[in-house]
Design a protein around this nucleic acid. Structure first.
Lengths: 335, 335
DNA sequence: TCTGGTTTCGATAACGTTCTCGCTACTATT
DNA sequence: AATAGTAGCGAGAACGTTATCGAAACCAGA
């Protein structure tokens, strides 16, 4: 009825030795003879022994678990980041606990607050675009819980962070549009307050200024393709119609392309479109979408690496890592 | 230096009562007066107390954690299933540990074998398409570890399973093609051995037979769009060219559509294409892809529900649940 | 033979909870 | 007034592991 697992005690009893010896034999070989060690290991596998992490965690106050808190995983970027996190974690014998906030600040605070501090060694977080109050995270740093943010990072709270180079990426996108001969460029920005929307907006504006160009509109909204469509309506409702769109991300750019197609406006020739992410769908959509490729997988691995270093050494200094992006030219910016 | 969390003992000392009373006050109100209970709860929040799951897990041999083992999360179906799992789990106070196998049987066995049995209450698994030896899962059922499979289930091992109705879905897809006037239908199947490729293949073949039609080819390969392209090459290399393609999934169908477009074959009019999944990209690709919609989110929720029932009642009978699919007609099957 | 130093092991106390008793004090019943 | 019952609480064991300390056994050197 109740699952009865073999414990270290059972092995000790079976071999007629003490639990202490078994425990020692299990991990490092010091203080235990080679033969008893082998004996213990053999009977352990024979009895199908699995260590009880609750017990080890209790005494060594360190579970080998990290929590990942992320708005969603149903898009290319996030799911790829998680994949990177997961792989690095598993390679280093850490296990990943997944928490989805669904971009709701309520759920985020709830999850973080209820998270049993004793059940994870550290936290990897990407905030929702609603979050403005970060006290739930601040409580964590107060008790010295290792915490690193990725992609979306709150500026007020001083911990390590791993992001892509949003500013330079935005500059590259805008430069590319200008180089292709577009001059009336609008920007579909992300939700206000997010570091990444600010950086990408700044890159866009700075590049325009550098070339003495005026902005043809900046609209803040969400990340979905539906948001892209909606923004196009308001954008093309004005007398000053842009001849190019720089979208804060690919999904929104998909909406832009679909809208343009529906209105028989030739994408590329008449209106150029560039996104940000390099979602696989950008190759599939027609015309294919030019974009700024984000190193999502590497961001996952790197942020996990930084977190584990923080866990293993309290003195590991705070990191602010920015990974390079890359321009990918496709049909949507070809005249 | 070492994170020192407030324990139940600290609260007891602060209030001058015993740990037992604090422990009781923490959970249910029985055997403790309302006022002490309130007192305990207040000082608990005041001292920022968080329960130590290692300790509770140790004594009650039950962590509130479930493990999810899945080939990947970088596609619509899997990421949506995980979302469903995650939401149901969180609603019922269970936490999710994520393990990615990357469709490698080696990693799958490794992960399952190294999984500390004591650190999770149950397992939710979707096998890789490589897995043929299921002994690592059988070892789990031997020690009565609750285990339920979803989507891809091994037939040899008798546990609960939650899937979409692959057979009926394939019938619907084939019926639809026939109703649209296509008669030379080929099937791009999934990897051999997987239950879902068998079911979808069987649905396709049975429906053809029902209408006295011949198969215009069945090719087994992987799930990617690249696989779809490759299969089209071999398919159109033969003298018997099909006029419709039923793909085992959407991603592969995307490859088919791209290939057809590149070869100037009009999708829909000349060659009909239907997929399986209802990936959001199927709306974005042009022409848009007809498909069989899978209830991915519900599969996640349902399989999690079944697992938790198994965890909470050992006598809960084995379930084999099959959720309905739905035909979604778009441009790729319109003549 | 005695001393001192290894090597190998065992007893036992932790870790933070929950659980099983049992004890007190109060209330209700006769 | 005596007894039974109950509400509220505390003492201590248990969960499976690691860490600390010390004991035995052996060996070498004197």
């Amino acid at each position: 009825m109740t699952r009865r697992l073999t414990t270290i005690k059972d092995i000790a009893k079976a071999l007629g030795i003490s639990v202490a010896t078994v425990s020692r034999a299990m991990r490092d070989t010091y203080d235990v003879s080679a033969e008893t060690r082998k004996l213990v290991l053999d009977t352990a596998t024979k009895m199908n022994y699995r260590p009880n992490f609750n017990a080890t965690g209790l005494v060594k106050s360190g579970t080998h678990k990290i929590a990942v808190i992320i708005p969603a995983i149903t898009n290319y970027y996030f799911s790829t980041v998680i994949t990177g996190i997961q792989e690095y974690a598993l390679e280093h014998n850490y296990q990943v606990m997944l928490y989805l906030t669904n971009d709701s600040a309520y759920w985020e605070t709830k999850v973080v607050r209820e998270l049993s501090l004793s059940s994870v060694d550290g936290l990897l977080a990407c905030i929702t675009y609603e979050t403005t109050d970060f006290s739930h995270f601040e409580e964590l740093v107060e008790v010295d819980m290792p915490l690193v943010f990725f992609d979306r990072v709150p500026e007020s709270i001083k911990t390590s962070a791993v992001v892509q180079d949003d500013y330079t990426g935005a500059c590259m996108a805008t430069e590319h549009l200008i180089a292709q001969g577009y001059s009336k460029i609008a920007h579909l920005a992300g939700p206000r307050g997010l570091n990444l929307t600010q950086q990408r907006l700044r890159g866009y504006l700075d590049t325009l200024k550098k070339h003495n160009l005026e902005s043809y509109g900046v609209i803040h909204s969400g990340f979905s393709d539906e948001n892209g469509r909606e923004d196009m309506v308001t954008l093309f409702d004005s007398p000053l119609k842009p001849d190019a769109i720089f979208s804060v991300n690919d999904r929104k750019a998909f909406g832009v392309i679909l809208w343009l197609r529906e209105h028989n406006i030739r994408v590329g020739e008449e209106v150029g479109v560039i996104g940000f992410t390099n979602d696989p769908t950008s190759k599939i959509i027609s015309p294919s979408l030019s974009t700024i490729a984000e190193p999502a997988y590497e961001i996952g691995r790197k942020s996990c690496e930084v977190l584990i270093r923080h866990i293993q050494k309290q003195t590991y200094p705070r990191q602010e890592i920015s990974l390079p992006t890359e321009l990918v030219v496709r049909e949507s910016t070809r005249r």
